[in-house]
Write a protein that binds this DNA or RNA. Structure first.
Lengths: 186, 186
DNA sequence: TCCAGCATACCAACCGGTCTGTTTTACTAT
DNA sequence: ATAGTAAAACAGACCGGTTGGTATGCTGGA
């Protein structure tokens, strides 16, 4: 794997886990096994340009991952369960989540960097669009589907926050159990 | 108002808006109109001790605010609408939220500081307990009430994240509209 | 006079970022 | 095949500014 890709992959995980500011440049370089020369060669804009690249890369991999889970699932209910299940698996194994989320970046950068905020917005839109498509497939009207897809995205991200605060995967498990129930009622 | 209280109130807003690391010590001092001497006089533990104090203070004021909204409301549905309404009002007025949330702190500090994580956990538990009490009052069983209260907390925090990413209050508005509907179905 | 309640001066460590220098690679003209 | 060359891909020293934190000085009230 080439240096640039390795940098993005490593940095993405770190940013997802701990946010932007909390990850120092030197720590980043050490984790990637590179030096400043390499970083500023590939990303003249420095740390922030790397962050944007991470978010864009995340957009692709996340889309692929979630879409693959959704294609294997028969209903939106099952699909959402599968996505949350993956998050719980990560959480229980590593004690932290390094996929399917970027809440730490959003809350930190939305006021700080317009490009970063835009990239985050694009990511959420992408996730919601996948939910939306499956919901329409399930027979929901367009309005309903877009409301629910936003709602799903929000409650999953919020559930992750609760998991982080409690240092446990129980909140996401609860949400995983409640969500499908709610979607039947519509 | 005495210096210590002023420090806590000002710092709380800043931490809520932008997180912990993103708020520098000097900026903090300037915003509070004090010097380092005063800070380290009242909080020998420095910035982190101040953060803990902020979270504890937030626990009290947040509880009072939300409980007051809940007491005036007839049902959980109306109460939740009122809480989200306050958030939206803040968001539309200031372009940022400085009350009813601390997601930026959670995502940033959960891996960094055990005491901070504990304080956040306590805060979420407190909020959920208020929801829970009202839900039981509405006639829900204990199990149901605790599931829904967790769910409410999660989706509100998640909705706020979406608002930050989109720089708009629409996500929270959507959630406000959908949530009560869901709660009737139970 | 004594001590809480600050203010001021200062510090080492670290921050992200720039700079210059070196190696590696890719291509080309002979 | 080979020598020459230019650009890409790094490496690492260095920089000014900022960080959180400390040590000391001052000051008004009990």
């Amino acid at each position: 794997m080439d240096t640039k890709t390795r940098m993005i992959e490593t940095a993405t995980k770190l940013f997802q886990q701990r946010g932007y500011k909390a990850v120092g440049l030197n720590e980043l370089l050490q984790a990637c096994g590179i030096t400043k020369g390499a970083l500023y060669h590939h990303f003249p804009g420095g740390k922030e340009e790397l962050l944007i690249a991470c978010l864009q890369s995340l957009n692709e991999t996340l889309t692929m991952d979630i879409e693959s889970l959704f294609n294997r699932a028969t209903s939106t209910e099952a699909a959402v369960r599968a996505v949350i299940g993956e998050m719980i698996k990560d959480l229980d194994r590593d004690g932290t989540i390094a996929g399917y989320t970027f809440s730490s970046i959003v809350s930190e950068m939305s006021l700080l960097s317009e490009p970063a905020r835009d990239a985050c917005r694009a990511l959420y839109e992408k996730i919601q669009s996948i939910f939306y498509a499956k919901l329409v497939e399930d027979g929901f009207t367009s309005d309903r589907a877009s409301s629910i897809s936003l709602f799903l995205t929000a409650s999953i991200e919020g559930g992750l926050l609760l998991c982080r605060a409690q240092n446990s995967s129980i909140p996401l498990q609860t949400i995983s159990n409640v969500l499908p129930e709610l979607m039947k009622e519509f």
